[in-house]
């Protein structure tokens, strides 16, 4: 077990290093002169040189990478070009918003995804099953920003149910905040809900074919008891695993949702940092997001290994 954890940990470290290398490589090859973009209009060559020195842009790529790497263990991510403040501070402000939104989305995914999946597995090939299959497929097939705009149109502009965008203003109570979460969380949850529904369906179907279920049925247990007591418990293991890992994705991949709904989270910051070529900000944000993502993966894998001994015994090819 310890060996398994150690090995997973070592893999994670390698991934993080790889990610930093990739990002630095991307950033180093961006077109345009960053110093000129940061400088006042018509700045002299001298001013540009000062800026380059200040942000280490004059150093060779490897040196810059080294300077950056040295600060990482202390989470020193440098100062943002555009905000002129430490990147960590900005992450500190925006990350809680992304996490809150991801939690709200996760709730939606759990409730609707599992419900739809179990229903369609139990009533296989029924009208309900077909409906779930089609509607989940349509959800996956829709561009997320279109879903967002349509929701704003229907629920906010026509029905006036929810505020069209933005985070709850400071001082709003928990209950008063809920309407602000509904639409962005639903848009963010759409794709994952569809996947969870499909995953739950296929996993339930698989379990329902297992011998012990057949035995349970043969023993004359009621169908309801078979499903709720036996099938559900085992059928949902892969779903729970997926949900755990998806949480990391929900935090990091909300770029479009956060843009459409003007949500002050990390995705929002990241998009604008990329287009404004705020190097330190992009590297810092992606670094933290990836860190969260791999950390969650690691936790999920380890806890899964506790639950399912087959994994840790296996010299089997690594997971994730």
């Amino acid at each position: 077990m310890l060996l398994f954890i150690l090995r997973r940990f070592y893999q994670t470290v390698i991934v993080v290093i790889g990610v930093i290398l990739v990002i630095s490589l991307l950033m180093a090859s961006l077109p345009g002169d960053v110093a000129r973009m940061r400088a006042p209009k018509g700045a002299s060559e001298e001013t540009l040189e000062n800026i380059r020195q200040k942000f280490n842009l004059d150093k060779p790529w490897l040196t810059r990478l080294w300077i950056y790497l040295k600060g990482l263990p202390r989470l020193e991510l440098g100062d943002s070009f555009t905000y002129k403040r430490p990147v960590m501070e900005i992450i500190g402000e925006s990350l809680p918003w992304s996490v809150k939104l991801a939690i709200a989305a996760e709730i939606i995914i759990v409730v609707f995804g599992i419900l739809a999946g179990v229903i369609s597995a139990v009533f296989r090939y029924s009208f309900l099953d077909v409906l779930v299959t089609i509607s989940t497929s349509v959800l996956v097939a829709m561009p997320i920003y279109w879903i967002g705009r349509l929701m704003q149109l229907f629920f906010s502009q026509w029905l006036h149910w929810f505020p069209p965008s933005g985070a709850p203003p400071p001082g709003t109570g928990l209950l008063g905040s809920i309407p602000y979460y509904v639409m962005p969380a639903t848009a963010l949850a759409a794709i994952s809900t569809a996947y969870v529904a499909r995953l739950a369906r296929s996993s339930m179907l698989e379990v329902l074919r297992q011998d012990y279920i057949v035995t349970a049925r043969a023993k004359g247990l009621s169908e309801r008891k078979v499903i709720y007591k036996h099938a559900l418990k085992n059928g949902l293991i892969p779903v729970v695993t997926y949900l755990g890992i998806d949480f990391g994705v929900l935090i990091g991949a909300a770029v479009l949702t956060e843009m459409i709904f003007n949500w002050p989270g990390v995705g929002h910051k990241l998009y604008f940092a990329v287009i404004q070529r705020d190097h330190t900000m992009v590297i810092g944000l992606v670094f933290i997001l990836v860190l969260i993502f791999v950390a969650i993966n690691l936790l999920v894998d380890i806890s899964y290994a506790f639950l399912d001994p087959r994994i840790r015994l296996g010299e089997a090819p690594e997971v994730t």
Partner: peptide, 9 residues
């Protein structure tokens, strides 16, 4: 989702 399933490799 399949990609995330440990053991389903």
């Amino acid at each position: 989702p399949e990609d995330y399933l440990p053991g389903k490799e």
